[in-house]
Write a protein that binds this DNA or RNA. Structure first.
Lengths: 210, 210, 210, 210
DNA sequence: TATGAATGAGACTTCATTCAT
DNA sequence: GATGAATGAAGTCTCATTCAT
């Protein structure tokens, strides 16, 4: 079990402010991401992370209070990136598209995100068992983004509806797209089309007029 | 990284033939399941598993060549159970039901399975990174069951269609139902309804006449 | 700061019951005693203790939950030994001796104890800062032994008197004898005589008739 | 084991000459004293000392070649202070007092010293194992002060007598008074009276006419 | 001169697995 | 066959000290 030691860094662990540090911290996170994907969180060692990031182990521990903090930082990085990627879907131009096109673009967007963030799932799976609060925080942010979008698509949604639909999109469609990313190219393409259909048919049942 | 040592047990490790052994092996697996769910695979120790199953550690190693084998056995047990639970959905009585009812029953079936097998996900998540071959094997069996059902629902499906649809059902709907199982009772009920809608709308687009 | 982790061993750490184990545990304690004296508690490493006791590090940790437990075990061993050595001074033969002779024997007894237990002081100095409860427990036992003796020497002592006198004997005379043990032989002999005088004159002021 | 690196500072480490430096050095020593008492020498970190003294770590290392030097400086500071405090007991007014009063004052003096120097013991205990030469040097100075006083009390003492008596006073009475300082107020008062009695009876046996 | 980020040896501890009894 | 004590490689993390800025 992963023990989280410092939700609020007490000051001993530096936030990277200088350029050089920032580069190193990101290199460590990149390496950690790769290793967590390849071997899983538990099997990846801090020594290995430091070595592959070409950083002394002591330096790693200047930026991360413990191994769990690396995972947490990764989670934060992913959540921020995902939220950011989703913002385009809240723009008027996007929202004006026919639902078919909107869903198509959206599905592609999720797919791209998973492609550029191969560690997303590995990270949150681990976070889910080990640091439920962090997991919840990330989920909440994501949920809010989905709910905002849903309200813009149909202002009549109740909050309960939004919550349920957002949950479905995140857990069902999200997981499908992510699973697709591990499949051979051709099958993957087909699966992305299925994801579109799945979303579209589901949303249509809530947005009959669209 | 989990090192798989014995895909084919070389003979040193006994298959439980006697009644007593069979009970013990199952107790070990039950304990392992619980611990893997609570703490994750990596954090659970073989000593702990043996102790809680009230079995000497040496005995554990007579039935499982290594820790990974416990995970593998668990995976096999789950896959068998799931396949078995799915057989009822291949019976004529079931297949004669209106699609709405069929999907409802099916969703409930998946939900029950996850409820009685809380370790299913923890197991396969771990298997997925650590023992892809085993994971693939399980997925294949599951896929076949889904494909058989789909063909019975509509004999005109191509193999590609079957494969895609089965994948969607497993990864999207399956994950949704599983995720729902961790939610508060009321929201969970709502989510199960959503899962039905999701499946139904999706399948209808493939089975327009049903 | 030394963190004590297990006041009550939860069962994971074995009490040595078998002959072989008992020998090993004592060898570890002997080695630890020597190293703590030479280098101090903090500077001695568990690896070093294990190596010099010719025991694998893993075995050391089967008997002691952590480094602090070695110190604690040492403290317990010393306290038991000291209490045992003091029992002879509660026997009628001893108590019948003239005070001069009694004090002489007693001083020699303390001196012998420190000679055969060179780590006594190093241990309790460390214990004192790091594990005050354990220290207190040891002190209490010792105090009780002194108080019993004092009451036998003079039944009229109040409890307050006993406590004060016992404290003086332990902290003043005890420390003197221990300090003497580090001095050159001749000076040491002289210091033991001084310790006798110190005790004798002090006790006489409380036992005028003796 | 504490490694002493610089008995004679080779020139790289500054003696604090300027007012500001002097203040800082003393602040560092004060902080170090407090931390050594609280946590022990080994557990206190140089970073912590620097931080609590509000001095950059680099600056700390400009005044102290290594961690051990802080301990050494503390020892020196204590020895100087103690010697200074003892000088009053060499003045004619003091020496003219009846022995009872002299001993009373002296005991109180030692007690005050320990009260204002709570780190004295922690320091010398550490020094004793780690830097015997430094310990010896301090002891020698203290011994000389005691011997001077003893000679003034009785010019007929041989050097051997002086040495023995001084040792007794330092190790027995000194330790008693220090131990008393950790006890509850009432008991402590009693113990100080005992310390007086102990000293007085002992010294009287050497100064019968006084 | 003053600073504090960077370094890496090494400390403590765990745990899967074996094999003598 | 059954048992569980024994093993030691390897993991996480600390901290005294340096030196580039």
């Amino acid at each position: 079990m992963i023990e989280k030691s410092s939700v609020a860094m007490p000051g001993r662990w530096r936030k990277p402010k200088q350029a050089r540090s920032w580069v190193r911290v990101n290199r460590m996170l990149d390496v950690a991401e790769a290793l967590f994907v390849e071997q899983g969180y538990a099997a990846a060692t801090t020594k290995q992370i430091a070595a592959e990031a070409d950083v002394p182990i002591g330096t790693l521990y200047q930026f991360f209070p413990d191994k769990a903090a690396i995972l947490e930082a990764l989670a934060e990085r992913y959540t921020n990136l995902l939220i950011e990627r989703m913002q385009v879907f809240e723009t008027p131009e996007m929202l004006e598209l026919p639902l078919e096109d909107y869903v198509k673009r959206f599905t592609e967007g999720i797919d791209s995100f998973f492609t550029e963030s191969p560690g997303y799932r590995a990270t949150f799976i681990e976070i889910n068992t080990a640091m439920p609060e962090v997991d919840q925080a990330g989920d909440d942010l994501l949920m809010q983004a989905y709910k905002r979008i849903l309200l813009k698509l149909n202002g009549a949604f109740t909050d309960d509806d939004c919550e349920a639909i957002a949950f479905v999109m995140i857990k069902a469609v999200g997981n499908l797209v992510w699973s697709a990313s591990g499949q051979p190219p051709e099958f993957r393409q087909r699966l992305l089309l299925e994801a579109e259909q799945l979303s579209l048919n589901y949303l249509k049942s809530y947005l009959p007029e669209a």
